[in-house]
């Protein structure tokens, strides 16, 4: 487990909700599947046209969108499947997959921090929008 929770931290039978219920929605967010990743999507805001195809096809809800624009990638949950990079229109190629080990080695904490910050705060200044509407099917 990569949640920091140990068996001996867990509650006993008298203290858990009845019937095996999970009484809080979306608790899976606390489980960090980002550790599964062998390849990391690196997103280039300069190239991105915000077609949002990466977002609609992401299995892990990891493409962060704010006000209709991509603002980052949730690397805590992204498993590195590469669908986003593959579905990014061939003339755009705003997402590239790089080996996780290389990304970590080359950029160290920098990449991680930047991506996380962008994910949280959203992009500030962007070049003019290249396309108005959301993405179309290929």
């Amino acid at each position: 487990m990569n949640t920091g929770e140990k068996d001996w931290d867990k509650k006993g039978w008298k203290d858990v909700p009845i019937a095996g219920l999970i009484t809080e929605p979306g608790t899976a967010r606390r489980y960090k599947t980002g550790e599964w990743r062998t390849h990391r999507p690196v997103w280039d805001p300069e190239k991105c046209i915000n077609c949002l195809l990466c977002w609609i096809y992401c299995p892990d809800s990891a493409i962060q969108v704010k006000d209709g624009k991509v603002v980052g990638i949730d690397l805590e949950h992204c498993k590195g499947c590469g669908i986003c990079a593959h579905e990014c229109p061939s003339k755009v190629r705003a997402i590239n997959m790089v080996l996780e080990s290389e990304a970590e080695a080359e950029d160290g904490e920098k990449v991680k921090e930047e991506t996380m910050r962008e994910g949280e705060e959203g992009e500030k200044e962007r070049k003019e929008e290249r396309k108005g509407e959301g993405g179309n099917e290929k």
Binding site: G26, A28, R29, E76, H77
Partner: peptide, 11 residues
């Protein structure tokens, strides 16, 4: 549906 589920990458 949040991230953090345990489906395979690319599921």
């Amino acid at each position: 549906l949040t991230g953090g589920h345990r489906a395979c990458a690319g599921c």
